[in-house]
Design a protein around this nucleic acid. Structure first.
Lengths: 212, 212
DNA sequence: TAGATTGTTAATCGATTAACAATC
DNA sequence: TAGATTGTTAATCGATTAACAATC
């Protein structure tokens, strides 16, 4: 089992980027070492939890001192594979799709969107923020030919399953799903649901609870 | 403790919108009754879990039959307070902010964005998708005067804490935070982090684990 | 050295899953 | 009625938190 990457609890995965942002902040502010006591205090978490999370990345700290901020940053980035650019396709050039294409920052997170797809003739052939928009018909074939692993799904819910099928047909490995719909996929396909409504449900219910 | 709303586990809150989308699908398809066995099978969850989740909303099912789809839909919507429109302000009219303003569908989730704020003179005074863009300077005061409860934060990470402070100064109750940054807020403020990077971390790591 | 911190094992807590009586 | 399903209690599982020896 040599090259096997250990499966990490999802709560841990969700906290790692939070640490990362904080670490980058204090690094910019000139701090070169940091303790889990420190991180936990700032982010309102348990220090032991922070230590356990960091342990997953394989980094070692120094008793009494803490962790080297710069090393810690790049260790987390390596762990999330954010130091390697991975090519991705985006499908659905609507409001959200365009916003994602326009946000230049995904390269910092290892994501390189190299083409977008839509079925609107007015959009096909154009470039949005330097990314060409191609017809849906070419999706499957290009995924296959270019060995694309990540598909970003920003189509309306009604189209989501259809496009998913095309992606899978092409051999996609992972789908970042922004549509408010549950995708049916074979077990081996990684799906991460990033639809806004889940998050909004938490917000609106907590607010309702708060306001009695 | 009469009017006290019971605090619901967050995992349950996150599943409720998933049920809701599925229920709307089958309702459109003409189904009027549904069992938890059915829902769970379709969404790859445990039937007992679905029953427990639904129990939080207070709905009652019929042994042997299941639940009335139409009633179930509106019960979940009520539970999340999605049947009442709540006014909200959005701050940060960049790519993402504009996409959110352009997405007409939030009214279905009880969210009514009535004004946007930015510090770019080129944007101030315009209307984006019928929502007026106002200067940041007016944010605190208008939150207070209009009794706004929800603030949507779509500014760059560097500005996030500053704008948060202004929102709190105005008396905001809940912040929907799309910036990749941890906000420091008093305990009583509801913050829901919807930044993309958390979700992306899960995707990229799982993909890395899968591809060995 | 003394004291703060790491790294790890044990205890606790909460959510998921299993079991099953009640029901229509 | 028989059989599927609800609603709930008990068992299990996994994540969080507490405790503490090792370390620099």
């Amino acid at each position: 089992m040599i090259n096997e990457l250990k499966s990490v609890p999802e709560p841990t995965l969700r906290r790692l980027p939070v640490y990362l942002h904080y670490l980058k902040d204090i690094y910019k502010a000139g701090k070169s070492e940091v303790s889990t006591t420190n991180i936990a205090g700032e982010l309102k978490l348990d220090p032991t939890q922070v230590r356990k999370d960091l342990a997953y990345t394989g980094i070692a700290g120094k008793p009494k001192v803490g962790y080297d901020v710069e090393v810690l940053i790049s260790t987390i980035e390596d762990f999330l594979n954010w130091n390697n650019l991975t090519d991705a396709f985006l499908v659905g050039v609507g409001n959200l799709g365009m916003a994602i294409l326009g946000y230049n920052g995904f390269k910092k997170y290892g994501l390189n969107i190299i083409a977008a797809f839509d079925n609107d003739p007015a959009k096909i052939g154009r470039e949005i923020h330097n990314v060409p928009v191609l017809p849906i018909e070419k999706l499957s074939d290009l995924i296959k030919r270019m060995h694309i692993h990540i598909g970003i799904l920003t189509v309306p819910a009604t189209e989501a399953q259809k496009i998913t099928a095309l992606m899978i047909q092409g051999g996609i490995e992972a789908i970042w799903n922004f549509a408010p719909a549950s995708l049916k996929v074979p077990e081996e396909i990684v799906v991460e649901n990033a639809g806004f409504t889940t998050s909004l449900a938490v917000l609106t219910r907590k607010l309702a609870e708060k306001l009695k």
